[in-house]
């Protein structure tokens, strides 16, 4: 059986742990702890090392799903987790104060990987009454000379996450 390593990254509260939990067929290994600082206003728990889940695509292919911590003080985990990954998913919390800056942080950090690795963007929490302007994400990526698929997803919705993953694995296969 071939194994493909995918990494979910993105800002605090973007839905990385939720997305992996939604599609994993094994109990997700996570390192969530109580949030003790101002981030507690947004989330009770936060990931401090990694999430890990698995998903079999068919009898011959298994996805190993890793999630990074979202807070920048844990950035030392990002290069550890991206090592050997064939695909990267950047999740963006559309309801955050400045989702484009959130995206920019992760695009800037992972740019060397994005240029060599299949990458998709997943925009989450678009149901929270914030104006739906996906064009801003496309415009930002274009300015960065990046052509990446942008999906609007609900991280709790298995079908949404699977469609995004299928697009990514197709990119991996044809890369």
């Amino acid at each position: 059986m071939s194994e493909i390593k995918l990494v979910f990254t993105g800002s605090l509260g973007a839905g990385k742990t939720t997305a992996i939990s939604t599609i994993s067929e094994i109990p997700v290994i996570n390192t969530d702890v109580a949030t003790t600082d101002k981030a507690a206003q947004r989330k009770e728990m936060t990931t401090v090392a990694l999430d890990y889940g698995e998903l079999s695509l068919d009898e011959t292919q298994k996805l190993k799903l890793y999630g990074t911590p979202g807070q920048e003080r844990f950035e030392y985990m990002w290069p550890i987790l991206i090592k050997g990954a064939l695909g990267l998913i950047i999740l963006v919390d559309h309801a955050s104060a400045d989702p484009l800056s959130d995206l920019a942080l992760f695009v800037r950090y992972f740019k060397p990987y994005i240029e060599e690795t299949a990458t998709v963007i997943g925009v989450t929490r678009t149901d929270l009454g914030v104006e739906h302007n996906m064009q801003a994400y496309h415009d930002y990526l274009q300015k960065q000379d990046l052509q990446l698929p942008v999906f609007t997803i609900d991280a709790r919705n298995r079908e949404h996450v699977i469609i995004m993953i299928q697009a990514l694995t197709a990119m991996v296969e044809f890369a």
Partner: peptide, 30 residues
């Protein structure tokens, strides 16, 4: 704290310990 914030530190040497707060929380959680 378990989520990587420095509360207090003391040392006899001259280590840079700030990043150890978040690294320590990752390791403890693992």
């Amino acid at each position: 704290t378990v989520d990587g914030n420095m509360c207090a530190m003391q040392q006899k040497k001259n280590y840079t310990l700030e990043r150890l707060a978040s690294m320590g929380s990752s390791l403890m959680s693992l």
